[in-house]
Structures are given as C-alpha cells and as structure tokens.
Amino acid sequence: MLARAVASAAVIVTLAAAGGAAAQTANQPPDTMAARVEACTPCHGNQGEGTNDVYFPRLAGKPAGYLYNQLIAFKNGRRKYPPMNYLLEFLPDPYLQQMADYFADQHPALPPVAASDASKEVLQHGQSLVSRGDPQRQVPACGSCHGPALTGMEPGIPGLLGLRPNYISAQLGAWRYGTRTATAPDCMQQVAARLTEEDVTAVAAWLASRPAPVNIAPAPKGTYVLPFACGSEPD
C-alpha cells in the first residue's frame, strides 16, 4: 500500500516535471548552435558565408581547428579587433570549439567571383607568387601550405578562396607589421615579412579572382608535408 502510494506519487511528480519541461521548452530559444551564434551573423552572415562588408571574412567551411585558433586568439587578445575581443572574452574554450565546429560544418556556395580592377601585370605577379613563390626571397608558394587547390588543410590551415581582396590584403598587412600573430613558430608572419606592399596587393587580387574549385573542402590532416614548421599546424 505504502509502496504503491509512493509509486503513484513518483509518477505524478515525473509527469509534472515533464509538463514543466515542455512548457519551458516552448517558451525558450531553440536549443541549437544556430540560435547561439546569432551574435556572429550581422558581420559573418547567417551561415558564415560573409556579408557585404569586405573586411568581414567568410567563416563557413574553414577548418574547425583554424576557426578555433582564431576564436581563442580573439578571446585572449592576441588577435586584436575590439568588437571580437569583447564578444568572446568570457566564453569557455569548449564552447568556442563548438562554435568553430558549427561554422566549419556550414557549406553555403562560394560567392561568384567579382571582376578584379587590378591590372594584368598585377594579376600576373600575384599568380606567380601564389603558385611558385619567390625562391630568391625564400617566399614559398601559397599552395605549399594552403594546398594545391588553395582550400587549406585540416586542422589549422585555412582555405584562401571565397575571400575578398580587401580582407586578404588587410590580413597579410597585419602579419607583415606583426599586429596579427599566431603560436610560434609563427610561419605566416615569417612569410609575410618577406613580402612587399606590392606583393600583398598582387596576391590578394589574384586569390580573389579565382573561381571556386569543385571540391572546396579542406584537405584531410597530413595530406602533404609543410615546407617548414608551423605552430598552428602541429605535426
């Protein structure tokens, strides 16, 4: 008798709890990452595809490790952009990893290539640096790290396509001047330091003029060997 009373009381409690939870859910935001990253969308687009602002990059489909490194760098202030530093300062690392995974998993189409206003000579210089580098100045080809199709490699090397020239040249400029840095050995800073302003403009113009390859996914980890050590892509 007593056991039965306890059992039915337990059922009532369970039902009440379930009812409460259901009511709670109905009046709650969706329990999804999409709802949680809405703060990112005015600048980066609903699926991380980018927006009209030429300085805000596409996030969609970049390797999760790369995105996570950037989120951590903004959180710690190593990478300086106050609106980003402010948003991320008090978010736990595992949550940032989930944000990175979320945007890495988004696959909106790459934007159509905009006509370049760069001259033929500039584009040729850009193509030459991107595909062959400049051995005399110890500048490697972009593809030697960012992949033959320039789509990057898991986990830490980003693809270079689908970005606008303003963003690429702003980032290369920041690497050159040392205002953007990464974990040592900071390979990207070493490379950018060997570039001139003209190189940066040319590389940015050429990269932004490239149409999307059929497969825009980054290459799996370890697909090719990097020409030198890089803190962002540990062996």
Partner: peptide, 20 residues
Amino acid sequence: NGGYPPGTKGNPMPYGMPPF
C-alpha cells in the same frame, strides 16, 4: 556592441546579442 553573457557552470553555452 551586442554581447554574450559570461559562460558559467550554470550556463556554459550562453546565447548572444548581435551587434548592430
């Protein structure tokens, strides 16, 4: 500026306000 509330033990995955 928008903003995120802090990530805490009780709310490890906060929802954020977009900057306008």
